[in-house]
Design a protein around this nucleic acid. Structure first.
Lengths: 208, 208
DNA sequence: CAGCCCTGTGTACATTCGTACACATAAGCG
DNA sequence: CGCTTATGTGTACGAATGTACACAGGGCTG
């Protein structure tokens, strides 16, 4: 009797994933979310959840996949906008921060997941970061800014860069999105971190 | 009628805090722990919880305080054992890893708390890290290894070091405590990160 | 058009949760 | 000794949770 029109396929699934992200965006930790809570936020009946996910961990894994897309978009934009090596670091950090602001919940989920309770999610996020670092290493190789480094040392440098930026996430997500002053401070600090790392790379001599 | 002998004061409180840590050590996330769960693990009736803590966040805050003690102990040991600057980094990293292994649950709690859901716990852990970084900066100043840096740049360097080491935590806590090979890899990688940072610091010229 | 699958709903239930309350015992203190 | 305070236990209950099951309707394929 209740008339339901057919919605776009996968709509509820999206609603559920967005609901989880929304809750994460509201200071809630993903590990503490429940199925009922998420479906409530999504405006859907609890049992609908099982049509798309086996449990919350499963939903988390699918969020990691989407996170990968977000990161790739960010990488593409950075590649397009950072043309000359001059302001490379400043611009990259700025792009990162702007993406982190625009996808706050996603990045919160990422920061949480690094020490989350699902081993699979943890490994998924770690893997995304590794991929990101290896792409960064490729870009650096291509730009020939640090020509004297071995591949291995370049990988290490890229890894350290990605970690430092990722850690800045926890700073960024700890302040209000409107607090431009604090965000500017974080941007400056992150930039200096990366500059310090690159100075290190420029003067690095492989051990042995 | 049930005869209870008086235990050491604060014993139950310790049991509860240890119970929470134990659960965190078992891949559980602190944010997902419940009062009943913790009291069950502690072998105590649920209502006892309220004799010592207002809620789980409160317990978390008190754990942060204890975490401070653990960190201070580690710092003291590092200061005592790292006498000559020669192997400073290697030894410090080794001491860190050994402490992280010995207090695995504590450090897991710390890694989780950085992106946890209680703002107060988050801020507490961040504050411990700031303190740690400032102590490290003092030590570096005292050792006069990086004499040309301004105080501000030295603080930045120490901050980056602490962050890098903290991030290594998530690596470390992701592998089995018995997997000596992987742990060795993490130790080497962390060591090289710090070396890279110090090379950067040694060649750093303050902007402006 | 008939049938099936996919997706969403409603109901149901045992389990778990947080917490309130009353009570018991031991310690400290006058 | 008697009183207060701190700490622990037992019972209780309303609310929330995960999930099982039966059902409904639209879309696709035959």
């Amino acid at each position: 009797m209740v008339e339901k029109q057919r919605r776009r396929p996968g709509e509820t699934r999206e609603k559920l994933m967005n609901a989880a992200l929304t809750l994460v965006g509201k200071e809630r930790h993903f590990a503490s979310l429940g199925i009922r809570e998420v479906t409530r936020q999504a405006g859907v009946v609890p049992t609908s959840f099982y049509r798309h996910f086996r449990n919350m961990d499963d939903l988390g894994l699918q969020l990691v996949d989407e996170l990968g897309l977000v990161l790739r978009r960010m990488m593409r934009e950075a590649r397009a906008n950072v043309l000359q090596a001059d302001k490379l670091i400043e611009e990259s950090v700025a792009i990162f921060i702007s993406h982190a602001q625009a996808n706050r919940s996603f990045f919160m989920f990422m920061a949480q997941g690094l020490a989350g309770e699902s081993r699979a999610v943890q490994e998924g996020i770690r893997s995304e970061m590794r991929f990101f670092a290896s792409e960064l290493a490729n870009d650096l190789r291509r730009l020939r800014l640090v020509d004297h480094l071995t591949d291995q040392d370049l990988d290490m440098t890229a890894d350290l860069v990605v970690r430092s930026v990722a850690f800045s996430l926890t700073d960024l997500l700890g302040v209000s999105p409107d607090d431009d002053y604090q965000i500017g401070q974080i941007r400056k600090r992150t930039t200096r971190f990366l500059q310090l790392i690159f100075v290190g790379a420029a003067n690095w001599k492989s051990p042995g």
